[in-house]
Design a protein around this nucleic acid. Structure first.
Lengths: 252, 252
DNA sequence: TAGGTAGGCGTACGGTGTACACCTTGAGGA
DNA sequence: TCCTCAAGGTGTACACCGTACGCCTACCTA
């Protein structure tokens, strides 16, 4: 028998394989299934073995985000600022759609990794190279917020619908009385299938709609030479937050 | 001795007192401290006692959100739509600032309570009563997203800064090379204290800025008679997402 | 051949939410 | 006055979590 004695000894773990497995697990089974114990099981290893490659779970999650950010397509060369911004952000969105756990994890991060900072730096660069003031760029970046990751927090618009058609009809009737505006909007917005309430929206469209409203707004402010501190410019039609420039409102 | 025998027997718990205590605890010690066990301790009761009033922790969290939403000021009567919207949303923001745990909890909710639906209904009503189409209203509500709760997800723009001034200077130098745009923006935006990087922004200002860019955008679209399905209107300068109306982009 | 080290293992601890059976108490009807 | 019953508080137990700590084993290099 040629087998010396060695049980064929699987190739050793490393940080990369751990992260890769974690991403795969979260992709397929959801982030709530991603426990260190279960991940270890998946890797055919004892839980504590993972800690030889990753100092704790937080670090693992950081690494997972980095892996996702690396999937975002690079900057388009020779594009106008708005196209460049759209491309980068919509590409981020595509990466994020492949990893449904990402929004939740991103929100729980407490600091930015170099990879993440690279991405932010490139977005800021797009504004600055288009001639935006640092001032406007700063506020625009804040306004974009989580949208730069390709998501906006969807705010549970779905009041759990019963499957039984009879009770559903009853619910419908009740809702029409209590939430007349919601129902009117739902009927009007999706005239083909009014019964789906708010559900069944075209997320991609909603995302781009909001993104474009923001980008168009930035463009307008930029052309007007807007500034948060300077004197009021002509033709700055509304923007209340500027009129009452930098006034702080105290919580309670 | 008048005391019959009864140990003075504290007044019994009820759902309201449980929720109230939970909110207080989360306000004062952070949401991560809010465990059923610790809450029970605070109430002078054994952990399982809470379950007689609340069927599980999720339900408790739902109830806490309802409590917060009830703090939002009612609709302003006789106000134009934009003022009404600003008032409601900024009031939501005030309520939320009193309860720093709320964003995190809101995001983890899976369905809307009646209280929450009431609030959403009122916002939708503001748009509709201003004559907005159901179509535009629908997309506008999506665009507002979590901002209707008075928060936008702040996206960890703070690369943990060392306190030691020497290493901080070194970090500064390194950053200027690797993240030139971030640094330029940071210096430009906060010329008085350039060292604070992106931190130390006026959150209230950033919030109102983004809100107003959106509301102004909605107003413009409304005046133009914008529609997501109809034929292109004149003077709809950009809004890419409409030009490529409802095209779906596949993830991956 | 010796020694150091990288990496996997086992055990254990303190934390979590909560199922389930039990007990105590006070109110209401017979 | 007694009995019953249910509301509400108790105690124990379970399965799960992240991870500290010490050990062991196989390999690489000197």
């Amino acid at each position: 028998m040629s087998s010396r004695k060695a049980p064929p000894r699987r190739l050793p773990l490393n940080r990369e394989r751990v992260v890769e497995a974690a991403v795969k697990l979260a992709d397929e089974s959801g982030i709530e299934t991603l426990s260190m114990r279960y991940l270890a099981l998946e890797l055919g290893v004892v839980p504590m073995a993972i800690y030889k490659h990753v100092s704790n779970k937080e670090e693992l999650l950081d690494e997972m985000i980095d892996a996702m950010v690396r999937e975002i397509e690079p900057l388009l060369p020779d594009a106008d600022w708005k196209s460049a911004m759209r491309h980068r952000i919509l590409s981020a969105r595509q990466a994020l759609l492949r990893h449904p756990w990402a929004p939740h994890v991103i929100e729980s991060r407490t600091h930015a990794s170099p990879i993440v900072l690279d991405y932010m730096d490139s977005l800021i660069g797009i504004f600055l190279q288009a001639g935006f003031s640092t001032d406007l760029t700063h506020h625009a970046m804040h306004a974009i917020g989580s949208r730069m990751w390709g998501f906006i927090q969807e705010v549970f618009p779905t009041p759990s619908q019963p499957s039984d058609p009879a009770t559903l009809a009853a619910m419908f009737a009740e809702y029409s009385v209590r939430y007349p505006h919601i129902m009117k909007m739902a009927e009007g917005a999706s005239h083909d299938n009014a019964s789906s309430l708010v559900a069944g929206c075209d997320d991609q469209f909603e995302f781009e709609f909001a993104l474009d409203v923001l980008l168009d707004g930035f463009e307008r402010l930029h052309k007007q030479g807007w500034s948060s501190t300077g004197p009021m410019r002509v033709n700055n039609p509304s923007l209340e937050s500027v009129k009452r420039s930098k006034r702080r409102v105290d919580p309670k």
